[in-house]
């Protein structure tokens, strides 16, 4: 059997309930110790699962159940306190889309810089440049040499989405970004995601939209207050989540 693309073992991460970590020097010097209570909680604990190549996994759970934290650890932008999350191959994180973009530079410069950050060489970007701007749409194309901050926020996200999905990385992480963009663009995004899936990419999707989850994911993972409660076909997992949510509402 081929090795899993995403391998998560006993993953745990601990957060401070208070702002203790954000220490102030005055506090440390004057009070000798921190005034803030030092109790902690585990945002995620004992999480283990594998994702095989080409699988599409939807992550389900209420607010604060640790979905985004889990995604960040898989993306490698947060480090676990216990266990590990290993990814074989590079990741295209659709998490903070416009994170790598700078307002002062033009859209064109930004595309080169952000793609460079994700490991593309100049030649690779040259080759994909037209594809990126074709996807982002004609309005964006017309303003290629305009400072990035002059774009509307929707347009900014369009460019970022076009760029990250053009990177061609084997693993794609999506955190609630499908809700952005107007109707026409959303359809384009869906299409592109489907193309990526049929192209053998591994997809990891966080969403509250049952429609999106059912459309893309075959398998579901259900997180509830930091624990992995369910792992199975997406329909069953959604049903489990809904039953839990209804039970909570009733009690």
């Amino acid at each position: 059997m081929a090795k899993p693309v995403i391998e998560v073992r006993n993953l745990g991460i601990e957060f401070y309930r208070s702002r203790r970590r954000r220490m102030s020097l005055r506090e440390m010097v004057l009070k000798r110790q921190n005034s803030a209570p030092s109790d902690t909680f585990w945002a995620l604990r004992n999480i283990s699962f594998d994702v095989a190549k080409g699988e599409a996994v939807g992550l389900v759970g209420g607010n604060g159940s640790g979905k985004s934290t889990l995604l960040r650890m898989i993306a490698g932008v947060m480090l676990p306190d216990e266990g590990h999350a290993k990814v074989r191959g590079r990741v295209a994180p659709l998490i903070e889309l416009t994170g790598g973009f700078l307002g002062e530079l033009t859209a064109r410069e930004n595309v080169y810089l952000a793609a460079g950050l994700h490991g593309l060489t100049k030649e690779q970007i040259d080759a994909r440049f037209d594809e990126i701007f074709d996807f982002a749409g004609p309005q964006v194309q017309a303003g290629m040499d305009m400072p990035f901050r002059h774009f509307s926020s929707g347009m900014q996200v369009r460019i970022a989405f076009a760029l990250i999905t053009t990177l061609d990385q084997p693993v794609v992480l999506v955190d609630e970004v499908l809700a952005v963009g107007d109707r026409a663009f959303r359809e384009k995004c869906y299409e592109r995601m489907e193309n990526m899936l049929s192209g053998g990419k591994t997809l990891f999707l966080v969403s509250h939209s049952e429609h999106d989850l059912r459309r893309f994911a075959e398998r579901g993972l259900y997180l509830s207050s930091g624990e992995l409660k369910g792992d199975g076909p997406i329909d069953e997992v959604i049903a489990q989540y809904n039953a839990d949510a209804d039970a909570d509402a009733a009690s």
Partner: peptide, 9 residues
């Protein structure tokens, strides 16, 4: 911060 949060470098 935004970049540190979004790029695995």
């Amino acid at each position: 911060a935004r970049l540190v949060r979004s790029a695995n470098l």
